[in-house]
Computed example of a mutant assay.
Amino acid sequence: MKKNLLAGGIILVALVIIGVNIWKGTPTAQKDEAGDSTSVDTPVQQVDSGVEEGKLAPDFTLTTLEGEKVNLSDYRGKKVLLNFWATWCPPCKAEMPHMQEFYELNEDGAIEILAVNLTSVDKGDKKIQEFVDDYGLTFPIPLDEGGDISELYQAYSIPTSYIIDSKGIISKKIIGPMDGEMMNSLMEAVD
């Protein structure tokens, strides 16, 4: 049953990724000199957000579910698993027990998990707190209430995770759920 749920979640994520890529590649309308809309055959230009492998992860400040301010830059010197998720997301639900187990196995402080909730598209703080309690999550849950950070980090399908090294450099972007073994291998590959 769990394998079927995970497989279904992975298929759903793949379909969302395809849909987003098709949507982002659709032509847009522009106004000509007379102010009339005209069709343009070129895809929408993407703004370079600076979020890519090999670059410094853009800093942000968010408030956690507990009301504490979190800055990504405060975690320099540690490896960071930056995860974007929501309570209604089946692959996120499948991934959370693995993240909690991974977090508990790495309580020495060299690795940190920041699980950013997409609060702007979720079901409210009460549902988020219920989710955290149900899954026994003990890592920080920053709330992206305006959706700006998930947009900056291009979390168009969730879960989306970034592996950030101890110098703050993005090592890897992962779209879709991970298990503990994958988290371990990705974190071992960075300084």
Results as ranks from 00 to 15, higher is better:
residue 1 M to W: 11
residue 5 L to C: 01
residue 17 I to V: 13
residue 23 W to Y: 14
residue 26 T to K: 15
residue 27 P to Y: 11
residue 32 D to Y: 03
residue 32 D to E: 03
residue 33 E to M: 14
residue 34 A to P: 02
residue 37 S to Y: 12
residue 38 T to P: 00
residue 40 V to Q: 05
residue 42 T to D: 10
residue 43 P to M: 03
residue 43 P to N: 08
residue 48 D to G: 00
residue 49 S to T: 09
residue 51 V to T: 00
residue 51 V to L: 00
residue 54 G to Y: 00
residue 58 P to D: 03
residue 58 P to F: 06
residue 65 L to T: 04
residue 69 K to P: 12
residue 69 K to A: 15
residue 73 S to P: 09
residue 89 C to M: 05
residue 90 P to L: 03
residue 91 P to T: 05
residue 94 A to C: 09
residue 94 A to H: 10
residue 96 M to D: 06
residue 96 M to T: 10
residue 98 H to M: 07
residue 102 F to V: 02
residue 105 L to Y: 10
residue 106 N to K: 01
residue 109 G to A: 00
residue 112 E to G: 02
residue 113 I to Q: 05
residue 113 I to Y: 07
residue 117 N to S: 05
residue 121 V to S: 11
residue 124 G to N: 07
residue 125 D to E: 14
residue 128 I to G: 05
residue 128 I to D: 10
residue 129 Q to S: 08
residue 131 F to C: 02
residue 134 D to C: 04
residue 135 Y to G: 07
residue 136 G to W: 03
residue 138 T to P: 04
residue 140 P to A: 14
residue 143 L to A: 14
residue 144 D to S: 13
residue 147 G to S: 07
residue 149 I to L: 11
residue 150 S to I: 05
residue 153 Y to S: 04
residue 163 I to W: 01
residue 164 I to W: 01
residue 169 I to H: 00
residue 176 G to Q: 01
residue 177 P to A: 10
residue 177 P to F: 02
residue 177 P to G: 06
residue 180 G to T: 12
residue 181 E to T: 12
residue 183 M to H: 03
residue 186 L to T: 03
